Amino acid sequence: MSDRPSPSSNALTALEQLIQVVAQLRDPQGGCPWDLEQTPESLIPYMIEEAYESVDAIRRGDSEHISEELGDLLLQVVLQAQIAQEAGDFSLAEVAQGITDKLIRRHPHVFGDAQANSPDEVRQTWQAIKAAEKGEDESRLSSKLARYARTLPPLKASQKISKKAAAVGFEWDKVEDVWQKFEEELGEFQEAITQESRQRQEEELGDLLFVLVNLARWYDLDPEAALEGTHERFLARFSQVEAACDRPLSDYSAEELEAFWQVAKQKLAL
């Protein structure tokens, strides 16, 4: 037999070193001032950013950057657990044990005697066990929709909420009714911009965006993919505009920048 350490042994060694490094960064005596001032709440933007950067690396199929970004994401997990441990709330060991126990509970077809012969059956079992664990009434869709609103990015939550509500009949009769609702919400938003408070303006903007998500669903379009495509096109055109300018963009008039923009659009369309 080989004396070489197993992959799991190597992983545990590396993880233990990471835990020690994070603990040292948080040490009041000689630690890092930036790390010491962090709280669970202050780290939220970094967790979100690292999660999205990991997704981007995975989509690009860049294994080197996937590894790097997953490391950055793992750091956020370890740092959150370190701060919690300092406060006496929980430890990284409890985090790991908790997810291990959850996986075993929610896979009775692997770790027990239950049967699940398809991915759909696995999903149904998972959701049923999850609802029982959380004490949720599966007959009440509103509790599930509220969880989407709390835990998902707003655009993704809108898609989920819209789709689930429509599936139980909370839906327009025809797409023309959705367009009519869009016109109604657009008018209310325009009125709020000129006459209402900032809070009302944001409320009406949210209503307008939610109707747009519903329109996308009716036409079987993915609003997230659509917005990502817009970002890509904008950045490609903007890069062309910058390349065409020989002085700072702020030195040009709006008309001159628009002319550069139109040239970029035509060039990239070829």
Score class of each variant (00 low, 15 high):
Ser239Tyr: 10
Ala93Leu: 15
Gly30Glu: 03
Leu215Tyr: 03
Arg233Lys: 14
Leu18Tyr: 05
Lys102Met: 12
Pro7Ile: 07
Asn10Gly: 02
Ala225Gly: 02
Leu249Glu: 04
Val241Ala: 04
Val122Lys: 15
Gln195Ile: 04
Leu43His: 00
Leu18Phe: 02
Tyr52Asn: 13
Ile161Asn: 01
Asp89Val: 15
Ala149Pro: 03
Glu94His: 13
Ala269Met: 11
Ala225Glu: 06
Gly135Leu: 06
Asp27Ile: 08
Ala114Glu: 09
Pro154Ile: 06
Glu138Lys: 13
Ile104Gly: 00
Ala236Phe: 03
Phe90Glu: 05
Asp113Trp: 02
Arg217Cys: 03
Ser143Ala: 14
Met1Gly: 12
Glu202His: 03
Met1Leu: 09
Gly71Trp: 08
Asp62Ile: 02
Leu25Glu: 04
Pro108Ser: 06
Glu49Leu: 10
Pro45Tyr: 05
Gln38Asn: 08
Arg123His: 05
Phe234Ala: 09
Arg233Ser: 06
Ser9Ala: 14
Gly229Ser: 14
Ile66Lys: 04
Asp72Met: 00
Asp35Ala: 15
Gly88Lys: 08
Pro119Ile: 05
Asp35Arg: 09
Ser197Pro: 02
Glu37Gln: 15
Val78Phe: 07
Phe238Val: 03
Ser9Phe: 07
Lys181Ile: 11
Lys174Asn: 13
Ser67Leu: 13
Ser42Pro: 03
Ser239His: 14
Ala11Trp: 04
Ala259His: 10
Glu49His: 08
Ser2Asn: 11
Ser143Arg: 13
Leu235Ile: 02
Asp62His: 10
Ser162Tyr: 00
Leu103Ser: 10
Gly112Met: 03
Val178Gly: 02
Arg150Gly: 07
Glu53Lys: 01
Pro154Arg: 11
Gln82Leu: 01
Gln159Ile: 13
Ile48Gly: 00
Leu79Phe: 09
Ser253Asn: 01
Leu18Glu: 07
Ala149Ile: 07
Gln38Ala: 08
Pro119Met: 09
Gln20Gly: 05
Trp261Gly: 01
Glu69Arg: 04
Tyr52Glu: 10
Gln82Met: 11
Lys163Phe: 06
Leu257Ala: 06
Ile161Gln: 03
Pro223His: 04
Asp3Glu: 12
Arg60Lys: 13
Glu16Gln: 14
Leu36Cys: 02
Lys156His: 07
Lys267Thr: 14
Pro153Val: 04
Pro5Arg: 07
Ser250Glu: 11
Arg217Thr: 02
Leu12Gly: 01
Ser118Tyr: 01
Thr13Pro: 00
Leu15Lys: 06
Lys144Pro: 03
Leu155Asn: 02
Arg147Gln: 15
Gly88Asn: 04
Asp56Leu: 10
Leu92Met: 11
Ala14Asn: 09
Glu188Gln: 08
Val241Arg: 08
Pro28Ile: 07
Pro153Arg: 11
Gly88Trp: 06
Thr151Gln: 14
